[in-house]
Design a protein around this nucleic acid. Structure first.
Length: 601
RNA sequence: GGUCCCGUAGCUCAGCUGGAUAGAGCAACAGCCUUCUAAGCUGUGGGCCAUUGGUUCGAAUCCAAUCGGGAUCACCA
């Protein structure tokens, strides 16, 4: 049940409230009156549920509906008829009403999208945040697509968005890849192996794990307990030593670190480009991991934190329904949340104008962010309330959760390449691409393959975990990206064949709308409210599902109403306009999802 | 065990700020290409909306309990 657009809703509600008040002696105001779109099985455009008024009316729901309906009909020329079924008052708006509405829609360029303006907010949105020890996998894909899409959707509301990426480029896990490469790498480089840099480094992350496990087994066979073995394995000791060297700025270690991270960044760059995502600013944990310590001191003097006997510094959140949380280790070093506190404070200093900070991070960290925001609020940062954890569900495989070390991951590059390859195959099979240059074809395969993948992921509510079965490849028919892209191409094909001048078409006042035309107008009318809703809830699936509905409706229209073959020129020109604005909403909606739509396919 | 999230068609998902007979896609079956792109359209079958109670004129939707699944509760990140 959607709010039916603001203008119409407001217009109707404000017409209805005096009627209801006068009839039944109530004092409702227009905002209290809830209208809904009339269900398909019934005659009418909008529906008012009369149950709330039957007491005051001292009448049956049917009678109440009749009374309101009669008044509405009498006072409003746009309302042409009504009917009452049980407690539901359905009324219809006139042909002219919809036609007039459509005229104003068709005159707007980028209907529903607000330009950045001075009243808009400045919002920082963090997403992606990869580790530099392994390539991206399907989970990262969801994060990246979601973050990028939400940023784009927020921009349509006239806000400025600063997209940031906080790269986890240091720590023990990075050292693992480094040690393994040093021990077993024989000087391999992306150049010498032809491997993508992130994959090469990832290979050594796996190598580390193999060697580590082998050493543990040897130690256990020699009589050690599992716990002892895990601590004493030489490769682990070497890794810990390397981390200390890194923190001490040992030149050789830093050089190795820079070299291998460089490989990873080259690899990520390629993946990001394929994904079509970008960032306005990069943050690196190697620069931020020491932040937050002073704040801990500050909190200590304010009495928000306290020192335990063992020297660690904590905060007690048990009154808030949370636990006690360590914010500084007894050896004085930071924990995860210390950095996050410091980084947040730093960002608000660096960008004093930001009104909101959004973190795109998986729902496994729900608790962490609850604690983080609570601590920031306690420290007295008023903007703590404007921090938001854009939490999304895990992507699960049929066998369960993905685990990097166990090799049960779907690699992002493999996945994307596979989708593009399937797109190529399917396109060739259908054979509709005569006259494309080789370059255009490559772009098209890319567009379709990535469109399928992106739509597949973004059409589901981010909050929910989603299942991905690699064996059942992503579909190109039905509720999919390619279906929407195809429809767009179809419209564009008609527009290319139209011989008149699209810009100069004036919509006649004397058109009797076909049922499907009216439905198309009604649905187009909703687009701005869909964007609003989607931005407000940080949910691209709202846009995705809307665009699908619009597309499906267009295809029904396409099957019932000829455009170019329509003999009545007035109607033909109107239809040209109608499909043109449909195409542009499809395009703009898909852009919100980071999906391109081709002119031909 | 505490806290949080989730259970809708065989499968993947909409609908959830309470409203009419719970919707799509995939899969299955049956139709539609001398007509603007069939990656399309039309139709058929498929549901105790996990269960039980409660609130309400009205519950898939709100509340509680139960069952089932997941996450989290580190001086890891």
């Amino acid at each position: 049940m959607y709010f039916c657009g603001m203008n119409i809703e407001h217009f109707l509600s404000s017409s209805l409230s005096p009627i209801i008040n006068e009839l039944f002696g109530l004092t409702t105001n227009p905002n209290d009156i809830i209208l809904q779109k009339t269900k398909k099985e019934f005659e009418g455009d909008y529906t008012l549920v009369t149950f709330p008024y039957i007491k005051a009316a001292k009448a049956t729901p049917e009678k109440t509906g009749e009374l309101i309906g009669e008044q509405l009909l009498k006072h409003h020329s746009s309302v042409t008829q009504f009917n009452v079924v049980k407690g539901f008052l359905n009324f219809s708006l006139s042909n002219d009403f919809w036609l007039t509405e459509y005229k104003s829609i068709s005159q707007m360029s980028n209907y529903g999208i607000k330009e950045a303006n001075s009243s808009g907010k400045q919002i920082m949105l963090e997403y992606s945040s990869p580790n530099t020890n392994k390539p991206l996998h399907l989970g990262h894909v969801r994060n990246n697509l979601l973050g990028y899409s939400v940023a784009t959707i927020i921009k349509t509301q006239g806000h400025e968005v600063i997209k940031v990426n906080l790269v986890n480029d240091r720590g023990i896990h990075i050292c693992k890849s480094m040690i393994a490469w040093k021990l077993f790498g024989n000087g391999e480089t992306p150049q010498s192996t032809g491997m993508k840099g992130d994959h090469l480094v990832g290979k050594y992350y796996v190598e580390f794990d193999k060697a580590y496990k082998k050493e543990i087994q040897t130690l256990i066979d020699g009589g050690a307990t599992k716990e002892e073995a895990e601590k004493q394995a030489p490769i682990m000791l070497q890794t810990q030593e390397m981390l200390l060297k890194w923190e001490a700025n040992d030149p050789d270690t830093i050089d190795l670190w820079k070299m291998m991270n460089g490989w990873v960044y080259d690899g990520f760059g390629v993946s990001y480009k394929k994904l079509g995502v970008d960032f306005d600013k990069m943050y690196y944990e190697s620069n931020t991991y020491l932040l937050g310590k002073e704040v801990v001191q500050e909190g200590l003097t304010k009495g928000i934190f306290y020192k335990k006997d063992n020297g660690s510094i904590c905060i007690d959140l048990t009154n808030e329904g949370l636990d006690e949380k360590v914010v500084l280790r007894s050896d004085g070093t930071s924990v995860y949340i210390t950095q996050d506190m410091g980084t947040a404070i730093e960002r608000f200093k660096e960008f004093p104008k930001i009104n909101q900070m959004i973190y795109t991070v998986g729902n496994e960290q729900d608790y962490h962010f609850k604690v983080l925001f609570k601590i920031l609020a306690k420290l007295g940062y008023s903007w703590a309330n404007e921090c938001y954890h854009l939490s999304y569900g895990m992507v699960e495989l049929p066998e369960g959760k993905m685990k990097s070390r166990e090799g049960t991951v779907v690699d992002a590059d493999d996945l994307m390449d596979g989708m593009v390859a399937t797109a190529k195959e399917t396109t060739k099979e259908l054979g509709k691409v005569e006259g494309f240059t080789t370059e255009e074809l490559e772009t098209l395969y890319q567009t379709i393959g990535m469109g399928a993948l992106k739509y597949f992921i973004l059409k589901v509510d981010p909050k929910k975990k989603m299942l991905f079965d690699p064996k059942e490849s992503i579909d190109f028919n039905g509720h999919t990206g390619p279906f929407i892209q195809y429809t767009h191409a179809r419209i564009k094909s008609i527009l290319r064949k139209f011989e008149g001048n699209l810009q100069s078409i004036l919509i006649s006042d004397h058109i009797t709308l076909h049922e499907k035309e009216k439905e198309l107008i009604k649905l187009q009318y909703e687009f701005p409210y869909i964007l609003e809703e989607s931005a407000k809830t940080f949910n691209p699936a709202v846009v995705a599902n809307y665009i699908y509905e619009l597309t499906k409706l267009f295809n029904q229209f396409y099957n019932e109403c000829p455009v170019l073959k329509e003999e009545n020129n007035t109607i033909k020109e109107f239809r040209i306009k109608l499909i043109d604005s449909t195409a542009s909403i499809i395009k703009n909606g898909m852009t919100c999802l980071g999906i391109d739509v081709p002119e031909r396919m």
